[in-house]
């Protein structure tokens, strides 16, 4: 099946600054694609170009079958965006904002009324719907912003840091609503600098840094791509013989073995779920009782650090 979005060498320059640098990316229909990167990585600029809000300096993108340069009206007909910063005038009310948005996106009167109520209720925004935006907290304004896309249910939803400024309970609620939106047939581009969010929601993740797309794949494959990224700590009842350490090192998935204590080993390896049963068999055969085993996978933070040499916080500071 052809990808629903095809980005070809998309570039945006502001004077000497290259905000997006020859971005190539495909988004499959029905997937959640996480665009992960610190602030200033170029995620929002890339999104604004795809949404035809900003014209690219070079390259183009195809949304559905439409070229963003040649058929911007058609492109906008397929998209819905929840912006990073809530876009609303201070004199407006949440009701005004979402109701007008639903109208302009072509929802019928009945459907509009039903969905507006349903979504505002789900986001705890039904009660304050008539309050002026200036009386709302940052988190509440952010909920109104995400409500627009949830009400619209576009073919392609772009959500830019959808849960920033939102409390933990609200975050989980919005994540569930985004997953439901995908279940209902929307393709979602999720731009975020929250690693856990990208990991939890995305089918595939693209890591952006300094305007470039460094890598894209499923979160699992990205984690597996770090050599020795998985860590297994094994506690033994008696001292580990040298021979077994050598045998463990001989396994092709094992990158390194450290003897932390005579009775404790730490293994750096790949594809932990496949290797651990073999390791356990090895200890059983050698009659070395294992008292405990603890496994940890690399996080997307490790993936980001692997590809950029920086933690996401350092990268954020770098771009400021």
């Amino acid at each position: 099946m052809a990808p629903i979005i095809r980005i070809e060498s998309l570039t945006k320059k502001f004077g000497n600054l290259i905000a997006v640098d020859h971005l190539n990316l495909e988004v499959e229909e029905g997937e959640i694609l996480g665009l992960l990167g610190p602030n200033g990585a170029g995620k929002t600029t890339a999104i604004l170009m795809v949404a035809t809000v900003m014209r690219p300096t070079e390259g183009t993108a195809y949304v559905g079958e439409y070229d963003i340069r040649k058929q911007p009206d058609r492109v906008r007909g397929l998209l819905g965006i929840a912006f990073q910063e809530p876009k609303m005038l201070w004199v407006s009310t949440p009701w005004d904002v979402v109701n007008w948005h639903a109208k302009v996106c072509g929802l019928s009167t009945e459907e509009r009324k039903r969905r507006v109520k349903e979504v505002l209720n789900a986001l705890d925004m039904w009660e304050p719907r008539r309050k002026n935006v200036h009386a709302l907290s940052g988190g509440m304004r952010k909920r109104v912003e995400i409500a627009k896309v949830l009400i619209q249910r576009p073919k392609i939803a772009i959500v830019d840091e959808p849960t920033s400024q939102i409390d933990v309970v609200g975050k989980h609620r919005i994540w569930n609503m985004l997953l439901e939106l995908r279940e209902e047939g929307s393709t979602i581009i999720l731009a975020t600098n929250e690693l856990y969010e990208a990991d939890q929601l995305s089918d595939r993740v693209g890591i952006m840094h300094k305007g470039k797309l460094l890598v894209r794949d499923t979160p699992k494959k990205l984690k597996d791509s770090i050599l020795g990224g998985d860590i297994v700590e094994i506690q033994l009842e008696k001292d580990a013989p040298v021979k077994i350490v050598e045998e463990l090192k001989g396994l092709k998935e094992v990158v390194d073995v450290t003897q932390v204590k005579p009775t404790s080993l730490r293994l750096y390896l790949n594809r932990v779920e496949e290797v651990v049963p073999r390791i356990m068999n090895l200890f059983t055969k050698k009659n070395i009782p294992v008292t405990s085993i603890r496994m940890s996978e690399p996080s997307l933070d490790d993936v980001f650090a692997h590809y950029t040499g920086l933690t996401i916080e350092q990268a954020q500071k770098d771009s400021e």
């Binding site: 965006i81 912006f83 910063e85 876009k87 948005h101």
Partner: peptide
């Protein structure tokens, strides 16, 4: 200008309106 300051301009440009 008010809309540009609050980013509403970007929002209006992203809508399915020519």
């Amino acid at each position: 200008y008010e809309e540009a300051e609050h980013g509403v301009f970007e929002y209006l440009l992203s809508l399915p309106v020519s």
